[in-house]
Design a protein around this nucleic acid. Structure first.
Lengths: 203, 203, 203, 203
DNA sequence: AATGAATGAGCGTTCATTCAT
DNA sequence: CATGAATGAACGCTCATTCAT
């Protein structure tokens, strides 16, 4: 229905980027529920119809926001993680880059959290972000498997450990929302110590 | 007139309980956003106005659902936790009872998660459950402090550890939703081991 | 549909009176719009169904309230007015008794005003109290006609004078509502003087 | 883009004017209580949501109706009244212009009366138009005070006289509703005579 | 490329009324 | 006599979406 990806003009891309930015601002500030397309349009000094014009539907806009934030996060984290030479270091950098991203991009973070918690719904519908979460767990499991093969890590159920790791990271935004002065560097150090002790081969 | 007052109250309470049950069913199945009073009424084979009759407002119904589920959880978990004689055991039982509750009461669990994540909104408004979450963290911190005084636990930042513990527990419902066959007993054992290693005084 | 007038039991009458009293209280305090049968029932410590049982419909209850207040007013005013021997005195006593009633029975007064202004509606439906108002005007016109025949009064259009007289009286409740400390005795004296000067044969 | 901004505003203003007109029609015909946004929309051959689109809320629409009618009335009455050189003339023109307005703009008049009587409620809440009514009384009192200083008027309580004058004017719409053929020119002349006699210094 | 007026389904809520008990 | 649970229609309002311009 929309202009195909390859044929977007420069101005078209600029508009999309602007709308996405305003959507992030609105969702992070007002919360997902109180954010309507009209409010985003108002923030972008655009008409409500323009949003539909550029994104076809609300769902597409939300998806674009998620993609944008995910790309921001990935580009900031992935290179640093894969550059590590031990699984222990990779795990350490995983926490460090995750929390560093959260510290530096709070609004995109809050917007993403709002979207992920609200766009999913109920038992019957898996939600569009179940797959993404599964991917995140698998990425962690890869690092854990690596640590097992190198002998850095003790024996444990990788899925359980991955859940705990991802859970710790996912718990941060909510805590950050309640306490904006949270010391994320301290928290990162503590989480690194915690999971290093939890994963390392018994001494 | 001879009918005792409690009998009428019983009928009223039964209806309330039925509506709460249907609300849990609806929210767990459809998600918070897609659950309207009309849908709950339909599920309960009642008219839409009846919900308002029994609960006054949607907020009151939601609050009643939360209270119901919270009571179920508390009554199942608290006695077992406080019965422990060491902090390490208390922490262990914390994980065991939490995950046991999740295993046995999945729909109430999903409903509660849906409500808690949706009733809060945005950066500027704290949401009604921020305080509850803070309480949960403080409860964990109490156990951690106890373990410190007894010398069971190593030195660590209690808030960071509490965030990780709570994060691990909070990660379970989402994982359970994606994978209903998740082995919660295994997960509980692994989390106990994980956090025992992470908290214990270095050997 | 209801029990015929003649066959009301004592208890039935007592209940009706109690409900009417509570309806007056509710309407005078909350205003017509905010008064529901449920609120009246609550005030009367009765169930909402009982109101319908005793009055058949809301309209009937309202009608009963109007009848009650009208009877209170009439019984207080009419004897004094008809006892006068000159039209000028009758007009004087008309003002005096009207305002005295308003002073002593403020809640019934406010309730009546609320009902009359709200139960009537629009151009197409004459409203149930148009006839009553017409009767009130005719009663005033009778006094005016009497004053003309006795030569007390100058020539004027009786309907216009009646409208002004009734208008002055009807303006009092609204003013009383805005200013509860209004000196109604002063007002009565001033209105008597005003309309005595306005009606008397030129000197 | 060449189209001047005023043109769009013109369309918008035209719709607002049309909706206001239909609201007046509906309220005057059906009465305030029986007039819903849906009925107004139906009259304007619009969807129910459009009213909210143009006016945000019912209250705003009602306020716009009041402002519209008040402006019609003020523009018709005020210039003529302030142009008079004696208080007696000002009082005369006050009646004449008021009743002339009522004669020529009956539906707006009825609508305004409906709104003013229904937007207020009960003993405890003053209602948004209590202040307007007080202003109206004060305006009359100014004219009365003027007549006192010039020696045109006798001694009287200005508030009482103002209540009677305003009461006479306010009584007209109700009478007009019951009797559409009422001769308002005659009524105006009679009221002028009446209050001239009632206010003038004793001869 | 953009507008913004218009839509219409759905929301939570109120309330006079009914009726089995 | 009285209850109070239940109803269902109507209310004001929100909002993603459409479309003529």
């Amino acid at each position: 229905m929309n202009v195909p990806l390859g044929k977007r003009t420069f101005i078209e891309e600029a508009r999309r980027a602007q709308i996405i930015e305003c959507a992030i601002e609105a969702i992070a500030t007002l919360g997902y529920t109180r954010t309507s397309l009209a409010k985003i349009a108002e923030l972008a000094e655009l008409s409500p119809g323009s949003i539909s014009y550029h994104f076809g539907s609300k769902d597409e806009l939300i998806q674009a926001v998620v993609a944008e934030v995910a790309m921001m996060a990935t580009s900031m984290m992935e290179p640093a993680i894969v550059a590590q030479s031990t699984a222990t270091d990779a795990l350490r950098v995983y926490f460090e880059t995750n929390l560093a991203f959260m510290d530096r991009h709070r609004k995109p973070l809050f917007a993403l959290v709002e979207i992920v918690t609200h766009a999913c719904g109920g038992t019957e519908t898996p939600g569009p972000y179940a797959a993404q979460h599964e991917t995140a767990l698998r990425d962690i499991e890869k690092v854990l498997a690596w640590g097992r093969t190198t002998g850095e890590f003790r024996e444990f159920d990788p899925r359980s450990m991955a859940i705990a790791i991802r859970g710790a990271v996912d718990a941060v935004p909510a805590e950050l929302l309640r306490n904006p002065d949270l010391d994320l560097e301290l928290l990162a150090r503590e989480l690194v110590t915690l999971f290093t002790l939890a994963t390392r081969r018994r001494p």
